[in-house]
């Protein structure tokens, strides 16, 4: 595996081995060892052409725990914001000897463009491209679900997950649908019809417009962020109505199955798609998602930067 661009490129076995690797890395770094020499001497560039502090620091922490040199190249103050083309940026990174580029970009497909071009030779990690995918987020979500509800199994067979909200514009939803289905979970998308893409029928997920009819039957409720600009684009009448039908509040939470968990990729709009009581409740694993993000991203960097495919067995 050379790049991580889309969950579609991962086999089930590869996905599970990333989760297993993350698991071991979490144990190592939860223990006494804070820093591993694994990627010593390798250079990882965080190319963030779109603001995302949380994803960037998560990747940065992951790279640093593996002793890689990290260069941050973010939109503000860099040439990316001055209209430099992706090509020129890539050629600069190549000249700097980047072994891997972690790219966040507002254009769907930007990571793939970088990987497919001859502009640079390093590995490319998609840290969110437009409304396309966010594979590391899906992997950390699957990791978190498996930890809580996996019953020691390697996949998510038998589990039900509802993904609720702005599916149309969500790269988190796209990656999660692909990954959770690949791992055997049953996925239901819950959204107003305006926030589902035309063509969603071809996704490995079912669709519902009625949150209340779905919520009692799922093991995981994954809430998606509603961007402020959707309000002005007439996807729904107003925030209050959205909240009433698709928000997760304590009343709705009461109808959840015992043991079911609440997730959110962040940043949250408290009071819109999720109420403060729910976000801070014992069902919420939202802060744990952040913690797990570092281990999962360590695993991704480890797998990509040590070349070849993952083989089983020690020695």
């Amino acid at each position: 595996m050379r790049h991580l661009l889309s969950i579609a490129d991962l086999s089930k076995i590869e996905a599970i081995s990333i989760l297993d690797t993350a698991n071991e890395l979490a144990r190592v770094s939860d223990g006494a060892v804070k820093k591993l020499p694994t990627l010593r001497g390798r250079t990882i560039v965080n190319l963030f052409a779109e603001d995302s502090t949380r994803t960037r620091i998560s990747f940065e922490a992951a790279a640093k725990r593996l002793s890689a040199d990290v260069i941050n190249f973010s939109a503000k103050g860099s040439s990316v914001s001055k209209g430099e083309s992706l090509k020129d940026t890539a050629m600069t990174l190549q000249a700097m000897g980047a072994d891997a580029v972690v790219i966040r970009h507002s254009a769907s497909g930007a990571a793939q463009r970088l990987a497919d071009s001859q502009w640079m030779s390093g590995s490319v990690v998609n840290a969110g491209d437009g409304t396309h995918e966010h594979p590391s987020q899906a992997l950390l979500d699957a990791f978190t679900i498996r930890k809580h509800l996996g019953l020691g199994k390697s996949d998510l067979e038998g589990l039900s997950v509802a993904i609720v909200g702005d599916v149309l514009h969500s790269r988190v939803a796209r990656s999660n649908v692909l990954l959770l289905a690949k791992l055997g979970a049953k996925v239901t998308l819950v959204a107003p019809p305006t926030l589902l893409p035309v063509g969603v029928e071809s996704w490995p997920a079912s669709v519902s417009y009625d949150f209340d009819s779905v919520i009692p039957f799922v093991d995981v409720v994954m809430m998606l962020r509603v961007q402020q600009e959707r309000m002005t684009e007439m996807y729904f009448p107003n925030a209050r109505e959205y909240s009433r039908y698709f928000g997760l509040n304590s009343d709705r939470m009461k109808s959840m199955k015992p043991g079911a968990i609440v997730m959110h990729p962040g940043p949250m709009n408290r009071g819109l798609e999720i109420s403060a009581e729910v976000a801070d409740s014992s069902r919420s694993v939202i802060t744990e998602q952040v913690t797990n993000g570092v281990s999962v991203r360590m695993a991704i960097l480890y797998v990509l930067l040590t070349g070849g495919s993952l083989e089983a067995g020690g020695n």
Binding site: D20, E24, R27, P37, T38, V303, T306, A312, G314
Partner: peptide
Amino acid sequence: LDITLFRDDLRLRAPKAIMPT
């Protein structure tokens, strides 16, 4: 004590699955 993450030949070889420490 798993030593995979401490190997000095990681760049050359296919990554090994990490074993428990």
